[in-house]
Simulated assay, not measured.
Amino acid sequence: MTSWSLLPLALALLCSSTHCSLDCDLTQGLQEDFSLLNQMSTFPLVSCLKDRTNFNFPKEALNGSQLQKENATVIVLEMVQQIFTLFSQNATPATWNQTQLMQLLFGLHRQLEQLERCLEQYVEWEESSLESENPRLALKSYFQGISQYLQGKEYSHCAWEIVRVEIRRVFLFMSKLARKLRA
Rank of each mutant, 00 (worst) to 15 (best):
E78W: 05
M79K: 04
M79D: 02
M79W: 02
M79H: 04
V80M: 01
Q82W: 06
F84N: 04
F84Q: 09
T85G: 04
T85N: 09
L86D: 00
L86W: 04
S88K: 07
S88A: 12
N90H: 11
T92A: 08
P93H: 01
A94L: 05
W96N: 00
W96L: 03
N97W: 02
Q98T: 08
T99W: 03
Q100L: 15
M102N: 14
M102P: 00
Q103P: 02
L104W: 00
L105A: 01
F106A: 08
G107S: 09
L108S: 00
L108R: 04
H109N: 14
H109L: 12
R110A: 06
Q111G: 01
L112S: 03
E113Q: 07
Q114I: 14
Q114K: 14
L115F: 06
L115D: 00
E116W: 03
E116N: 10
L119F: 15
L119A: 15
L119N: 15
L119C: 15
L119H: 13
Q121D: 07
Q121F: 05
Q121N: 10
Y122C: 05
Y122G: 06
V123S: 07
E124M: 08
W125G: 01
E126V: 08
E126C: 04
E126G: 06
E127L: 14
S128I: 05
S128A: 07
L130T: 07
E131Y: 13
E131R: 08
S132Y: 03
E133Y: 11
N134D: 14
N134E: 15
P135R: 15
P135V: 11
R136D: 01
A138T: 06
A138I: 08
A138W: 07
A138G: 04
L139Y: 01
K140N: 14
K140V: 12
